[in-house]
């Protein structure tokens, strides 16, 4: 079904891409929150990869290379659809969130003793652990859509905050606040799912 152009780096086969496809799809879905759009960008990326196998030098892993292509496709998609992004709901669950944030600090703004951050497991160890990545994905999925979108544009796609604001029509201050909230939420979720419960 997929045709393969003459490849100088012979390893880029449809089969190899097929093996990565599931991970690509999850990555795209996390960001777009739209199964159909995710399917489209992944298909675009796979076709682009198959067309340009000669550009794959073998320096990076195939997966890294294909993910770089996929990130470009997602970035293009977001640029094209910036006006349809459902970001009017910036309020979202902010009330509930505000209460959670209050729960971290006392009325003087210092950590409540039981909320004071404690060290997490060794980073390298975490990053090579499958269970960690399952928690990571679940936590991202758990973020409200508008917060997740901005966080992932920043940290996955490498947009800087100025570009994100411009695309989404937010003030820089607003962007920074949203990014901060995303990080605090992720930290809370990762802490519960991974930081404290290793080995159990």
């Amino acid at each position: 079904m997929v045709k393969i152009s003459p490849a100088s780096s012979a390893d880029v086969t449809a089969a190899a891409l097929l093996a990565i496809r599931k991970d690509m799809l999850r990555f795209a879905e996390l960001q777009l929150r739209d199964a159909h759009a995710a399917e489209d960008v992944v298909q675009d990326a796979v076709e682009a990869a198959l067309r340009s196998t000669s550009a794959f030098s073998g320096r990076a892993s195939l997966k890294t290379w294909v993910f770089a292509i996929l990130k470009n496709k997602i970035a293009d998609h977001l640029r094209q659809h910036k006006h349809t992004a459902p970001l009017s709901s910036l309020a979202g669950d902010e009330d509930e969130w505000g209460q959670k944030l209050e729960a971290l600090f006392n009325d003087k703004g210092f950590w409540r003793p039981e909320m004071r951050p404690a060290p997490w497991p060794d980073p390298e160890e975490s990053l090579s652990n499958q269970q960690f990545w399952r928690v990571f994905e679940a936590c991202l999925d758990h973020l409200p859509a508008h917060i997740a979108r901005i966080f992932m544009m920043r940290e996955f796609l490498g947009f800087d905050s100025a570009e994100i604001c411009e695309q989404l029509g937010l003030t820089l201050r607003n962007c920074h606040v949203i990014l901060h909230r995303a990080r605090v939420r992720l930290r809370g979720c990762l802490g519960e799912g991974w930081g404290q419960s290793r080995g159990s």
Binding site: P119, E137, G158
Partner: peptide, 23 residues
Amino acid sequence: HFRSHMGFIRQAARKYAEGGAAS
């Protein structure tokens, strides 16, 4: 600790976006 968690989250996000999640 909070600050180091922030750094770790960025590190994890970058790795994830490079297709580096362990599977």
